[in-house]
Design a protein around this nucleic acid. Structure first.
Lengths: 159, 159
DNA sequence: CGGACGGTCATCCTTTTGGGTGATTTTTTA
DNA sequence: TAAAAAATCACCCAAAAGGATGACCGTCCG
C-alpha cells in the first residue's frame, strides 16, 4: 500500500522511489528548458552572454539554496567546549528527538514559529508539530513555560 | 521532491549516501552517452556546451560559498555569562515603570497574561497594556523576545 | 492650578500559539 | 527486510497574544 501504483508504473531501477523519479523529471525539465533557450539564441546568432548569464544566475541561485539547506543539519562540532550542565540523559529520558531539540533551542532564542520554520527550511506546520510534541514531553502548554522548564531540566546547551 | 532533488545535487558536500551516489553516477553516465551522441551532430557547438557547463559549475560553487559566507553566524566567542547583575540604571534609562517591571518578571516566569492579571489583581486588559508598553520600550514584539532582551540588559533580579 | 506621569480598563482587530487529527515519507533499528 | 521511530506537511478550531486607540483617575510637582 505504501509504494503501490506510482512505483509500479515507472520502475526503471528496482526499488526506485517516487522522489527519485520526481528528481529525475525535474532535472530533465530543467535540461529541456535550457535546450530551448539555447536553440532560440543559437539560431539567431551566437549570443553567449545572455545564455551564460541565465545559467550563471540560475545555478548560483541553486547553489545558495542548496548550500544553505544542507549546512543546517551540520551539527557544527565546534561546540565541544565544556557544556555547562547539558543533561543529555534527560533528553533521552523524555524522548525528545533531535529536531524537537532544535526547535526548543530556537524557541528559547525568542523566535516565532514562522521564523523557526524559515531557519530550518521546513513548513510552519512542521514546526508546530514539533513544538506540540515538545510541549507534551515537557508537560507545558506555552513556549515561555517551555523555556523555564528546559532550563530547570538542563536541556539547553547554553545559559 | 524538494529535498531529494537538492540532496542529489549536493550530496558531495554532505552525507553522500550510497543510493544517491549510485543514482548520480547513473545520471552522469547517461549524460555522457547523450553528449557523445550529440557530439556527432553538433560538433560546432561543443565549445558552447563546455562554456555553459563551466559557468554552471562555477556559479553554483560561488552560490554555495556566498550563501554560506553571508549567513553563517559568528562562532559564538565563548559565551561569557554576561551581566548577572541587576542593572537599575538601564531600567530608568528605558523608562520602564515599576508595574511594567513586575509584569516583565512574571512574563519571564512563563505566566500567561491572564495568570499575571490574577496575580497582580488587575484586569487582563491592564496587563496587556503594560506588556505592550514594555515591548515598545524593550523594542521587541513578543514575550519570548522580551525575555531574552531583559536578560541581556540585566534587567531581571534573578538569573 | 494644571500638566505630566503612572496605573487602570476598554474595544476592535490581526497575528500567533496551542491542541487535535490524519497522512506520507524518510531514517533508524531490530 | 520488516517494524518502529522520526520527520514532514496539512486542515481545523479555539485560545492567547499583540497592535492601536481612547478614556478615566490618582498623585506629584512646578
Amino acid at each position: 500500500m505504501r509504494k503501490s501504483h506510482a512505483t509500479a508504473v515507472i520502475c526503471f531501477f528496482e526499488g526506485m522511489r517516487k522522489t527519485y523519479l520526481l528528481y529525475g523529471l525535474g532535472l530533465g525539465l530543467l535540461l529541456i528548458v535550457l535546450k530551448l533557450i539555447e536553440y532560440q539564441f543559437l539560431v539567431r546568432m551566437h549570443i553567449f552572454e545572455i545564455y551564460g548569464g541565465l545559467i550563471a544566475v540560475l545555478f548560483m541561485g541553486i547553489g545558495v539554496w542548496a548550500g544553505l539547506k544542507f549546512t543546517r543539519k551540520a551539527p557544527a562540532p565546534i561546540i565541544v567546549q565544556a557544556p555547562p550542565v547539558f543533561d543529555e540523559n534527560k533528553i533521552k529520558e523524555l524522548g525528545i528527538s533531535k529536531r524537537e531539540l532544535e526547535v526548543l533551542e530556537l524557541i528559547t532564542q525568542g523566535l516565532t514559529n514562522q521564523e523557526i520554520a524559515d531557519k530550518l527550511f521546513v513548513s510552519l506546520n512542521t514546526v508546530k508539530t514539533h513544538s506540540a510534541r515538545l510541549f507534551e514531553k515537557l508537560d507545558v502548554n506555552s513556549r515561555t513555560k517551555a523555556i523555564n522548564r528546559a532550563k530547570e531540566l538542563g536541556i539547553l546547551k547554553v545559559n
